[in-house]
Amino acid sequence: MIQVDGLTKYYGARAAVHDLSFRISTGEVVGFLGLNGAGKTTTLKILAAVLLPSSGTVRIDGMDVARAPLSLKQRIGYLPEQPPLYDEMTVGEYLRFVAEIHGVPASRTPSAVEAVEERTALRAVHRELVGALSHGYRQRVGVAQALVHGPSVLLLDEPSKGLDPAQIIEMRSLLRSLRTTHTVLVSSHILPEIAQTCDRLLVIRDGELVAQGTEHELEQRLGGSGTVVVQVRGSAPAAEAALRGVPGVKQVTVASAEEDRVELHADAAEGLRPAIARAVVAAGLDLVRLDVGQDRLESLFLRLTRGTEG
C-alpha cells in the first residue's frame, strides 16, 4: 500500500509538488495523469526514494520512505522517464547486475533474470549489447530492470514513451498482467493506455492533486460529457441546427464537409446518441455514422489538467 500525506517538494522557490495526498491499495493499478511539468516525475522520484521531499510523508507498506529507504527500496521497482541503461553491458549482464544490487541472492539471480526476460519478451536479446537495441527493446529492458528483483510496488514513469502501436499493445498487456501481483503507479501521456490498464486515475496539475477516481467517475464529475461523432448526408447548417436543438448538447462543430457528406463533433454525453439520431432523422437528413469520439478521454484529460472542469 502507498500512503502519501501532504507531500511537498520545492526546487528553489518553486514548488514542483504541493501538499499532495493520496492512497493506493495493494494490488491496485493507478494511472498518474498530468501535463508536462505538473509534478508527476518529481512525485515518482520521491516515492522511489531517489529524491527527498521538502515536507510531507510517503509510506510504502507502512514504512516511511525518508527514514527507512534501504529496506524499502527492495520492495520498489522504479522505471525513470529515461530508462537507466548501461550501453556497454549485454541485457543479461545488466539485469543480473540490477538483481544483485537489489539484494537478490547470487544463487537465485539466473532464474530471476530468466523469468523477467520471459515476462518482458527479452530472451531473444539476452546476449545483445544494450547499446545496440532498438528503442522498444530498451524500454522493455527498463521495465525488466524494475521487475527483476520481485518488488511489490512498481513505479513506472511513462513506460510507453516513444513506443510504436504494436509495442504499446505489448506494454499494455504487460501492465495488465501485473495487476494482481503488484501495486502499480504508472504515469503516461498515452491516455488509452491509462484508461485500459488502470483501475483508477490520479490527476495532478501544477503539483497539486485535482481529481481522482475511475474514468467513469471523472467523466460524471465533468457533467458526463464527451465527444459524439455524427456523420450525415445533407447540408452542414441543417445538421448543425438539428444537433444544437438536442437538449444536453453543449457545443457542435463541423469537422469536415465534403460534397453531401458532413461530419460533426458534438460535445455531449454518450447516452444522448439516441436523441441525436432522432433529431437528425427528424430534420430530413440521412444518418451515416453515429459514434463516441476517440478523443473522449483526451478531452477529459485536457479539461482536468488545464483546469476547465466543472
Binding site: A48, A49, V50, L70, S71, Q74, P80, V98, I101, H102
Partner: peptide, 14 residues
C-alpha cells in the same frame, strides 16, 4: 549524463 544515476539512487545501497 547517461541518466543511469537514478538506478543506483533507487537501489538499496548507501
Amino acid at each position: 549524463q547517461a541518466g543511469t544515476l537514478p538506478l543506483l539512487y533507487a537501489s538499496p545501497v548507501q
